[in-house]
Design a protein around this nucleic acid. Sequence first.
DNA 1: CTGTGCAAACCATATGGTCGGCTCGTAGGA
DNA 2: TCCTACGAGCCGACCATATGGTTTGCACAG
Lengths: 194, 194
Amino acid sequence: MQGRERDTVRTRRVVLDAAAKVVGTHGSGASVDAIARQAGVSKGGLLHHFRSRDQLLLTLAEDLAEQFAAAVYAAADPRDHAPGRLVRGYVNATFDDLLDGSTVPEQAMLAATLCTVPGVAEVLQRDKQRWREAFEADGLHPQRALLIVRAADGAAIAGLYEGGSDPEELRQARELLLALSRRDGPLVDLPEVG
Amino acid sequence: MQGRERDTVRTRRVVLDAAAKVVGTHGSGASVDAIARQAGVSKGGLLHHFRSRDQLLLTLAEDLAEQFAAAVYAAADPRDHAPGRLVRGYVNATFDDLLDGSTVPEQAMLAATLCTVPGVAEVLQRDKQRWREAFEADGLHPQRALLIVRAADGAAIAGLYEGGSDPEELRQARELLLALSRRDGPLVDLPEVG
DNA sequence: CTGTGCAAACCATATGGTCGGCTCGTAGGA
DNA sequence: TCCTACGAGCCGACCATATGGTTTGCACAG
């Protein structure tokens, strides 16, 4: 019963990857049949593993959130013990995705499509709560951490939905956010302008 | 020939509003029929004004972009002539939408759905370019302006897709961004932390 | 032999888009 | 001013089709 379970796990994995690909290119028009074909599986076979299309997409959303979290923790330098370590991992993971660029339009499609799937909103909300707690434990001034994370999110949105950005600009933006994360305290001590 | 044209304009307006409402609640599942019913029009009547569903949604996207731009310029204080005036309008318009809150989930659905419509990506890209140029003429240090706008976008995303945020937190975030926009120069002169 | 992963045919239905026709406002001539 | 012809806005029935989900059957591991 072990080989079988392995097969099940592998098939689910293959289907999830196929779903990401097809949804990334065809958006909400991605049919179960198309996903199944991409996965090299029949529609019946797919629906044997995922009760419905919505449940498949929900699982995909959870899977992607998990993958991103893993990327963030992987991007956090293990030798970095200063406050803001996780924030820096978040920034780096975000911009790494963006700078790769090869799959940016697909990711935009993917994100937009998944957001319209019933149940995904709750998943995102739970995810948000987890990040919030993680950042609170990261030691940086909350206002500062929030600003940095928001800016990273905004850059991601801009990069995803509004066309690929200039790589050089992305790199600069990342450096700025990283620099901001290496300092601490409220953000008010700035030279005033006329 | 004038009354007729008025009718056409009004009907198109009604249909667009209906589309925003239905798409906001039903996402990509919003059918032409449902939109037509919401608008008090038959499906045939609707398709008389918009050649296809996609074209309707594309028009809706353009319309919403235009509405947001109008809100930004309306939110910019006419007596404000310091650099960053438009940035402040952008921040205020964004957070006004977010703080209203009543239609936040609908707007999230709406945005996500429209992003999957063919042609909307190009519209967003053009829109982005317009904003970029407008901000460049706004006089603030580019890096600073970009950071503020990105943070506002990120806050919008967080508010829209990850569940309504705490109003108090939103207000604080807005004040921070506005404060940042009232200063100028690069963002490096911050107290370093151990 | 048995149960599980999977295929393929099948079904009900929803949806986008078309079409012929009806209504009524408008233009233009008498 | 009145009448008529025209055309635009609009309706509602219709059609082809794509899609989500079910069911039946089969092959194979244990």
